[in-house]
Simulated assay, not measured.
Amino acid sequence: MTMNPASKPQQSKRLGNGAIMALCFVFAGGMVGMAYAAVPLYQLFCQVTGYNGTTQRTEQYSDTILEQTMPVTFDANTSNGLNWEFKAAKGIVPKIGETVQVNFTAKNRSSQPTTGTAVFNVTPMEAGAYFNKVECFCFTETTLQPGETLEMPVVFFIDPEITKAEETKNIKTITLSYTFYPAQPAKPVAAVQEKGKSANGQL
């Protein structure tokens, strides 16, 4: 049996096209995976480094308190779609390393229960890595009933290392800002199951 000499280049070409298509699928899948991972990775990066004014979360109190003080001011905002009155705590002047608590207040001005979630940042942004929160209403969603007013604590301290780092040693004042956004409260599992049964005609 004689093989057509032209068939070898054609087979090689088909193999080459198949390899290219496989690489394209792998590349596309990788790009999709990177897109999904980008947000959590960015958030993790901000939490670890304090980038973009992201504060640090800790369960331990500072074991060093300096005589040097650092004025801290607070800012409170609400986004469109959340009918809340959100008030900031008054500014304080704690010692660096001292654990302190301040209280923000929020009031639901609507006639319906609403849930909000708070995002935050610190300015100057370089101070974010040294601003440590022990307790904060921003760690979870907050639900307010119609007309309800709630005091929301923030417990924090400023890491004494802020006085040593070249980029932060000349900082004179820190501002902690919050903005509340509307959030959808999670539905109870029982309610979800009942809805699924109704859709299937099983009551």
Results as ranks from 00 to 15, higher is better:
A19C: 14
A118R: 00
P188V: 00
V189C: 01
M70L: 15
I65M: 12
T149A: 07
V154M: 14
A6W: 07
S12Y: 12
T54V: 02
D75C: 00
I162D: 02
E167A: 15
R57I: 11
T99M: 00
I158W: 08
T78N: 09
T179Q: 12
Y42V: 05
S110H: 11
P94N: 01
K90T: 11
T163M: 04
M21V: 15
S177I: 02
N170T: 14
V102G: 03
P9M: 11
V72H: 01
P185D: 02
E59R: 09
E98D: 09
E85A: 12
Q47Y: 13
E85F: 03
L41Q: 07
G33V: 10
P9I: 12
L66Q: 09
Y130T: 08
E98H: 07
K172W: 05
Q47N: 06
Q184G: 00
F180R: 02
Q202P: 00
N52T: 08
L150P: 07
A190G: 02
E166I: 10
G201T: 08
L44F: 13
T49Q: 04
T105Y: 07
A106D: 03
V119N: 12
L203T: 15
S110T: 11
E148K: 03
T168C: 06
I171C: 01
T114Y: 05
N83K: 09
K87R: 13
F74Q: 04
N132R: 04
R109K: 15
G196L: 15
T143F: 01
Q11I: 09
V155W: 10
K107I: 12
Q112E: 10
S111N: 11
K187F: 01
A38M: 10
P188Y: 04
T168R: 03
Q112F: 06
I65F: 00
A22F: 06
T140I: 12
G50C: 14
K13M: 15
T49F: 03
P94Y: 05
N17G: 02
L44E: 11
A106V: 15
Y130N: 11
E141I: 02
N4P: 09
G97M: 02
L41K: 06
G116F: 03
G81M: 08
E59Q: 10
N52V: 03
V155D: 04
V32N: 00
S62C: 14
S62K: 05
L176S: 01
G97T: 08
P40D: 08
I20S: 13
K13G: 07
F156K: 04
F45K: 07
V32T: 12
K13N: 13
W84L: 06
P113S: 10
V154L: 15
A127T: 10
G53D: 04
T163K: 12
Q101K: 14
P113R: 03
Y178P: 03
E67H: 08
D63E: 11
V48F: 14
G29W: 08
T54Y: 02
V134Q: 10
V189L: 15
L144I: 00
K197N: 09
K8G: 05
T142F: 01
F139A: 06
M31V: 10
K187Q: 11
R14K: 14
R57F: 12
T58D: 05
L15N: 14
G18R: 13
C46K: 10
K169I: 00
E85I: 06
Q43R: 10
G29I: 06
T179P: 00
Q47C: 02
T69W: 01
C136Y: 03
